[in-house]
Design a protein around this nucleic acid. Structure first.
Length: 230
DNA sequence: AGTGAAATACAGGAGAATCT
DNA sequence: AGATTCTCCTGTATTTCACT
């Protein structure tokens, strides 16, 4: 019989929030649940997945069109329908989970953003919170149109200025990073501009290429900028 | 102390991508 | 095409851990 611990349940709950994750993200999230900022080994993560599959809490598949196995929490575990792995947005969701797991490892909690409250509102890919500071997180594997950035940034400017959002962080491919930054320069007023940061974290195939420190690195560069302006 | 589950380590296999 | 390399996944033996 498989033993299910508190940590296992916390992991499954997180999987329910992000919907999908690949093994690499599981490594980071499990490390985080052990109180570590480092990922556990791949083998260990795979054993965990096998145990959870046996317990009926997690399901797994390896679509041939992409490298790693995709893992999700079963309907029994979280009461949500299993994700469709063949949708266009699946790669994006997997990438969001990859970023989310690294936030967990840094001691953040992770939630979904609120549903849009108006036609002009924009829903981020997630909210990472630590010590009362909430950060909106976006994963951008392909750049959107200029028009859409105008709307999204207008919305983010408001949330930064009036809704207690401390920062907006983009994790991008090289191409998307260029556009995200350029459009931010155009559309975000200078008093808020420094609080939107973008880093190159994925290659064109959607594989994580940021190092484990890239989140913290962007934090420190952000605070340096703020100090300089204070 | 004894038992079963989990962690760990190492060897190896399948499949895709790349090279010649 | 065939060989090679790479990445991700699996089998299994051994050690560690948790519980009664």
């Amino acid at each position: 019989m498989v033993q299910v611990t508190e940590r296992d349940l916390a992991m499954v709950e997180w999987l329910g929030v992000v919907r999908l994750a690949e093994v690499d993200a599981i490594r980071w999230a499990l490390g985080a649940m052990l109180g570590s900022a480092e990922p556990i080994s791949t083998r260990k993560a795979q054993h965990w997945i096998m145990r959870m599959v046996e317990a009926g809490l997690v399901a797994r598949a390896r679509p041939t069109f992409q490298g790693a196995s995709i893992v999700w929490a079963t309907h029994d575990a979280v009461g949500r329908q299993p994700p469709n792995l063949f949708r266009q947005t699946t790669r994006h969701e997997v990438a969001v989970a990859t970023v989310s797991a690294r936030y967990l490892a840094l001691g953040y909690t992770w939630q979904r953003d609120r549903r849009p409250i108006s036609i002009l509102d924009h829903q981020a890919d997630g909210i990472a919170t630590r010590e009362g500071r909430a950060e909106l997180v976006e994963v951008e594997l392909t750049a959107k149109s200029t028009q859409r950035y105008m709307h999204i940034y207008e919305n983010y400017s408001t949330r930064l200025a009036r809704e207690g959002v401390s920062r907006v962080a983009y994790y991008c491919t090289a191409d998307a990073d260029r556009v995200v930054s350029r459009e931010a320069d155009r559309f975000i007023f200078r008093t808020e501009r420094q609080r939107l940061v973008s880093t190159i974290a994925f290659d064109e195939r959607g594989h994580w290429i940021g190092n484990s420190l890239s989140l913290t690195a962007s934090f420190s560069s952000c605070s340096v900028v703020q100090d300089a302006n204070d």
